[in-house]
């Protein structure tokens, strides 16, 4: 078995009286594609913000990429990548400027940035449009660039928060090709999605309900357990037990 790259123990976040993430305990192995599902407001983004060091937990413990979330913040930051809803690039900047900007954020040296930019432009076949503003590029290209930029500093884990939200059927499939390729190279993927066909592409899934883990298993095992054909049906049975009607 491979090493755990994420380990959380009763990780909790409260906002006033409201418990957004309630004693989350997870172990995720290196190279895994881990799908993090749940209804709106279940606490997915809040959990990701804690695991990426953007938000201080209220209580509980976690190690990410071998570093303690509280005492090893710098180590965590160096070893994770993050891409949020509908990419995080700047439409007004050119391709090259975007790469330079994000590489800078991740703390790469000038020399490394130059080298990485050149490599990336070549592998993505974006040399010809390097000085074009992002706004005028097709969605698929932007998406590829956003993902590549998020993992430019060669992190161990990448957190993808609804990377395909609002994305058309062709482009979001291309995105999953990238996820699979990266995972094949050993990168650990932590991904949220509301597309239930994408849930099927994950190695393991966790479904959150009201800040708590409701089930955690491989998609095939979940479907078998609930006696259904698709993850969509699993989700519909599980995601919102406390109907408001």
């Amino acid at each position: 078995m491979s090493e755990p790259v994420i380990h959380t123990d009763k990780l909790t976040k409260r906002f006033g009286d409201f418990v957004a993430v309630d004693a989350l305990s997870l172990t995720i192995s290196s190279g895994e594609i881990f799908g993090f599902l749940g209804a709106n407001g279940a606490g997915k983004t809040t959990a990701i913000r804690m695991l990426t060091g953007l938000l201080a937990p209220t209580s509980g413990k976690a190690t990410v990429a071998g570093f303690d979330l509280y005492t090893g913040a710098e180590g965590v930051k160096r070893n994770i990548g993050y891409m949020s809803q509908r990419f995080s690039l700047y439409d007004d900047l050119t391709v090259r400027e975007n790469i330079r900007f994000f590489a800078g954020i991740y703390g790469l040296t000038d020399q490394a940035i130059k080298e990485k930019s050149r490599q990336l432009l070549e592998t993505l076949k974006l040399v010809a449009v390097a000085d074009t503003r992002l706004a005028s590029l097709p969605l698929g290209w932007k998406q590829k660039l956003a993902f590549s930029v998020a993992i430019l500093h060669e992190p161990k884990i990448v957190f993808l928060d609804e990377p395909t939200g609002g994305v058309d059927p062709v482009t979001r499939r291309r995105f999953w090709d990238m996820i699979y390729e990266a995972s094949g190279r050993g990168l650990t993927i932590f991904v949220t999605t509301h597309y239930m066909d994408e849930a099927e592409y994950c190695n393991r899934l966790c479904i959150m309900v009201d800040g708590k883990v409701a089930v955690l298993d491989r998609p095939e095992a979940m479907k078998r357990h609930f006696g259904v054909e698709s993850m969509n049906e699993v989700f519909i049975q599980l995601a919102r037990p406390h109907r408001t009607e």
């Binding site: 279940a42 939200g165 609002g166 989700f235 919102r240």
Partner: peptide
């Protein structure tokens, strides 16, 4: 967009 499967 961004709405969960049950709510959709």
């Amino acid at each position: 967009t961004g709405v969960d499967a049950v709510s959709r």
